[in-house]
Simulated scan of single mutants.
Amino acid sequence: MDGSFSSALNDPRSLERAASALRCLPFRRAFYGLLSGEAISSEELHRRDDQAQLSFVRLTSDRAENHFIWLIRVGVLRREVDGQGLTERVRLTPMGRELLSRWSGEIPRAALLERIRHGLRRRWPRL
């Protein structure tokens, strides 16, 4: 799917909310690059020896899963499906790929005010 078609399907507010999540969450670009080629679960992420290259902070599997759920809600990730239904593993969505194409290098980290707003939006989505 080309970027223009994908952009037409995603409204600007959804894209901006998802971009903010990418800037505010602790995952590095290498994490999303990994997900563009394979699916991974929060437990697998927690056990990886190279977690420091994938995240700015060490994550427990529960904390990573909470971030995965939020990224699913904003449209960046999706659950992988196997023959028996949804799995605990996640993959990058077309929206996630489109957002990552905005940055050539590492995803810029959000300023403190944006992180506070993001945290409030995440906990109280109606604000």
Rank of each mutant, 00 (worst) to 15 (best):
A110R: 06
M1V: 10
V81A: 03
W103C: 10
G83Y: 15
Y32A: 04
D2I: 06
V74Y: 09
A19D: 15
N66T: 12
I40E: 05
E38C: 07
L100S: 05
P12A: 15
R48V: 02
R13Q: 13
L34N: 04
G96F: 05
D2E: 10
A30C: 01
L15S: 11
G119I: 02
G85K: 05
V90W: 01
T60Q: 07
Y32N: 04
V74H: 08
G37K: 13
R63K: 14
L54N: 02
A18W: 01
M1E: 11
Q51H: 12
L59T: 01
G3P: 09
N66R: 15
V90K: 01
F5D: 03
R102I: 03
L59G: 02
L45T: 01
R13A: 13
G96N: 08
R121V: 03
S7A: 15
R115N: 05
R117K: 10
E106H: 03
F56T: 12
L54M: 06
M1P: 08
V90H: 07
I107L: 12
L34I: 04
E38Y: 13
G96E: 06
I72T: 08
A21Y: 05
S42Y: 09
L45C: 04
R109G: 07
V57E: 13
T93L: 03
A30K: 13
L35Q: 00
L127M: 11
I107W: 01
P12F: 10
R28Q: 12
M95N: 04
E44L: 09
R91H: 07
R48C: 07
N10C: 13
E114W: 00
F5S: 11
M95S: 07
G105L: 04
S41G: 05
Y32P: 00
T60N: 09
R89N: 12
N10H: 14
S41F: 10
T93H: 05
T60G: 14
A64Y: 00
I69R: 13
L113C: 03
D62V: 15
E80L: 12
D49H: 14
S101K: 15
D11R: 10
T87D: 02
R122Y: 09
L15E: 15
S101W: 07
R17I: 11
I40G: 00
G96T: 10
D50P: 00
S6Q: 14
A52P: 00
D11N: 15
Q51S: 08
R13F: 14
A19C: 09
I40R: 01
D62R: 11
P26H: 04
S7D: 12
L77M: 00
V76M: 05
R28V: 00
S61Q: 13
G37S: 13
R79K: 11
L77Y: 05
L127T: 14
M1H: 13
I40D: 06
A110T: 05
S104H: 12
D49G: 15
R58S: 14
